[in-house]
């Protein structure tokens, strides 16, 4: 198959992302990834956590098609070889840690339109994509604003819009809550709550993951050391501490309040049904 044919090829059957013995070494010789085995199904919502230097960003760069895979990586069924990277990049939306890296054009509107135009879409479609992406992030009013005059939260909203305008099948976010104030964070959480396709978030902000993902992979030393259900892993104080992480504040507060059984901590996404689930001892019977 030629490069051109490969570029035209759409998603293929299989999980959204599958890594087998994926490894990477930086040019100066440092190991970025040791050996990662991970499978993320289509439509699943995953968090990638781990201490600094554990390889989270490197793994995400592989998912986004920045590097050709050493070992094996399939993205939407397509192996991440050098030839397939352009196709993979069109299917995966990647958000950088620093929005200033993502927003390289002088105005927000021009930046959001950049990807769709490069994808060869007509002007009407580009316009619709730009308007839709900005509206979805609640930042339509920023369209004609100079990028360098935006606040941190506004930059983050605009940066996510640049990714959304490409209508990706997989959304990959690297530390999306960096420098966000409470309002911007709420907007981000609202947006993530409404995202129905595959989602991968690498972050130190475990509180964010508590409400947005279903599965967690813990990376340490360039390898995936644990994976599992988010509501269980995020409440496993010992596991988190072992890998240089800290439990989300909500979980800590509940634990300190005496809720010792992690399975009894309410999931913030579920409707609150009162404090009945709190593991507080029943009051002693009144003495007559």
């Amino acid at each position: 198959m030629t490069d051109e044919n490969s570029a035209e090829r759409g998603p293929e059957p299989g999980p959204a992302l599958r890594a087998e013995k994926l490894h990477y070494r930086y040019s100066e010789g440092t190991a970025g990834l040791g050996s990662v085995d991970l499978q993320i199904g289509r439509g699943e919502r995953w968090g990638i956590i781990g201490p600094n230097g554990s390889g989270k960003s490197t793994l995400l760069h592989h998912f986004a098609g920045v590097y050709a895979a050493k070992g094996h990586l399939w993205v939407l069924g397509l192996e991440a070889t050098k030839r397939n990277l352009p196709t993979i990049r069109r299917q995966v939306g990647f958000l950088f840690q620093d929005p200033d890296d993502q927003l390289f054009l002088p105005t927000v509107g021009a930046d959001v339109a950049f990807g769709p135009r490069n994808a060869g879409l007509g002007e009407a479609e580009v316009e619709a994509r730009v308007a839709g992406a900005l509206a979805r992030l609640e930042v339509s009013h920023l369209r004609d604003r100079p990028t360098h005059r935006l606040s941190g939260g506004e930059k983050q909203g605009a940066a996510i819009a640049t990714v959304l305008a490409l209508d990706p099948e997989i959304l990959v976010l690297d530390e999306p809550t960096n420098d966000l104030d409470a309002g911007a964070r709420r907007r981000l959480e609202r947006f993530l709550g409404g995202w129905s396709k595959t989602l991968v978030i690498a972050t130190h902000d475990l509180e964010l993951l508590l409400g947005t993902v279903d599965r967690i992979a813990v990376l340490d030393g360039g390898s995936c050391v644990v994976e599992g259900n988010s509501s269980e892993l995020l409440r496993d104080f010992e596991l988190l501490e072992k890998h240089g992480l800290e439990e989300p504040p909500t979980v800590r507060i509940l634990r300190e309040a005496g809720v010792t059984d992690p399975r009894r901590i309410p999931d913030p996404r579920e409707p609150a049904d009162g404090a009945a689930q709190l593991d507080t001892p029943a009051p002693p019977p009144m003495a007559d």
């Binding site: 098609g65 352009p86 890296d101 993502q102 054009l105 021009a110 950049f114 990807g115 994808a119």
Partner: peptide, 23 residues
């Protein structure tokens, strides 16, 4: 460092050698 990251950002969004100019 930033230049490298911008280059990656450009590639990920299909940069084909030209940037849009102005309005």
């Amino acid at each position: 460092d930033r230049g490298h990251r911008i280059e990656v950002a450009l590639r990920l969004r299909g940069y084909q050698g030209t940037l849009p100019i102005g309005r």
